[in-house]
Design a protein around this nucleic acid. Structure first.
Length: 430
RNA sequence: GGAGAGUUGGCCGAGCGGCUGAAGGCGCUCCCCUGCUAAGGGAGUAUAGGGUUUAUAGCCCUAUCGAGGGUUCGAAUCCCUCACUCUCCGCCA
């Protein structure tokens, strides 16, 4: 959420940036009207409240000294404007709620270092690591590989639940687990993250905090609790982990705090019908190891570089080619101020595909969550939050299957995973 | 699921219709005293919003004692709903 003060003081500049960079048109007239209304109603209301408070105090004194007549005179005076006060208070509440609603639907303003653009074609490559292998056979994609291994079964997954779910068995299921374990171990022992385990169902406040609500409810799976309350399946560990400190004031020496968390993620994928329907690229359920940081505002961009590098290191260890791009303004998520995507090479698709997204949200989420730190004596300031996939486990699995395939369709195990595979060196058809 | 007790500032804890934005203690900050690992004295110490101001400070005002609603001239204090915590019983991995 943007700071309402910025809109009050610098409306032109912000709306221009939102239009140019986000293709988001803020209803300036609505905002200005609401604001000026708010101003007069608030002043009036508070003046009346002050008057009521001081008269009430006098009533107290009068009663104490036994002057009942004076007391009832004073009460009558309050009665003269009681209705006006009440309606003013209601009106003010309405206006403030409207302003809040307006504000909570405005996306974050991209950082100045973010390239301007409309679509993913305008993203800027910042790094390319590794060279795609030359196969002396036609590489298969993970669907063919997995099915021939008898280890990936989309038909049965569809029978059990429906489309966009997957069933893994045997060596591939174990490889999937090995990847998650390897990522967790790397980020905790080498990169200094604290491992956390969180609920997979969250409430609406948490989703508001990280920015999925109120605008993106249709992307979530929800479980009704009562007429007006839902639990939601987490679309990413970002939600429960970032909300760990919702409503809290951290001490400055807690910054940066770094958490890593392995969870399943659930996404309804509404609006992406027909895209990536083959295989397990785009699923309703997938595992992800997520990195989350709470940073001091002065250092959050350094932290973003660090975090992105830590995510990349997993692919470097696995010796799989990838590239990193800076998302252009038009391709960024709602809450982000700057995002790097890491794209892994998939021989089966002959393309680089997103495997991680690393973002600095600056104080956008922190303001929604009211997560602050004590910057000095009696001064609190919003923290900056960051997160990134380190990495999406399902897509990493795809990358390993496709990049490590042998001519006969069996899969070599990457060196760093061997100790997690209980001696298995190659996954062969069962 | 049943029965009961709670939820107050960074922490502990008092208050149970008016003089309470909130006693007291701890912690923290500053000052004084003390020639010294200690002790004593004093002052300060919530957040958000609005107004005033070129702006900061200051000053004025408003809101906030789990959340929301109600009663009242006036609510931390009374009533209702909800959430959460604790204790005992039941059930359970």
């Amino acid at each position: 959420m943007l700071d309402v003060q910025i809109l009050r003081n610098d409306l032109e500049n912000v709306t221009t940036k939102l239009t140019e960079r986000r293709n988001f048109t803020l209803d300036i007239d609505a905002f200005v009207t609401l604001e000026s209304e708010r101003k007069t109603v608030q002043s009036d209301t508070e003046a009346l409240q002050a008057q009521r408070n001081s008269i009430s105090k006098e009533i107290g004194h009068a009663k104490k000294s036994g002057d009942e007549q004076k007391a009832s005179q004073l009460m009558a005076r309050v009665g003269e404007f009681a209705d006006r006060l009440k309606s003013n208070e209601e009106k003010l509440g309405d206006i403030q709620a409207k302003i809040y609603d307006l504000l909570s639907e405005i996306p974050n303003v991209p950082n100045d270092s973010v390239p301007i653009g409309k679509t993913e074609d305008d993203n800027v490559e910042v790094k390319k690591v590794g060279v795609p292998r030359n196969y002396d056979f036609k590489p298969q994609d993970h669907v063919d590989l997995g099915e021939k291994l008898g280890a990936l079964d989309f038909e049965r997954a569809t029978k059990i639940t429906g489309s966009r779910f997957s069933l893994m068995m045997g060596g591939v299921a174990r490889l999937h687990r090995a990847l998650a374990q390897y990522m967790l171990d790397t980020h905790t022992s080498r990169h200094g993250y604290t491992e956390v385990y969180t609920p997979y169902l969250v409430n609406a406040d948490s989703l508001f905090g990280t920015g999925q609500l109120p605008k993106f409810e249709e992307d979530l799976f929800s479980i009704p609790l009562s007429d007006d309350q839902n639990f939601y399946l987490i679309p990413t560990a970002e939600v429960p982990v970032t909300n760990i400190y919702r409503g809290e004031i951290l001490s400055i020496n807690q910054l940066p705090t770094k958490f890593v968390c392995h969870t399943p993620c659930f996404r309804s994928e509404a609006g992406s019908y027909g895209r990536d329907t083959r295989g397990m690229i785009r699923q309703h359920q997938f595992d992800k190891v997520e990195l989350v940081q709470f940073a001091h505002p002065d250092h959050s961009y350094d932290q973003l570089e660090e975090l992105t590098g830590q995510a990349e290191s997993i692919l470097i260890d696995l010796e799989i080619p990838f590239r990193t791009v800076t998302l252009c303004t038009g391709d960024m998520g709602f809450s982000s101020a700057k995002t790097y995507d890491i794209e892994v090479w998939l021989p089966g698709q002959n393309a680089y595909r997103e495997i991680s997204s690393c973002s600095n949200f600056e104080d956008f989420q922190a303001r929604r969550m009211q997560t602050r730190f004590r910057a000095g004596k009696n001064k609190t300031e919003f923290v900056h939050t960051l997160n990134g996939s380190g990495l999406a486990v399902g897509r990493t699995l795809i990358a390993v299957l496709e990049n490590y395939q042998l001519q006969d369709g069996s899969i070599e195990i990457p060196q760093v995973l061997k100790s997690y595979m209980g001696g298995v060196e190659v996954i062969e058809p069962s």
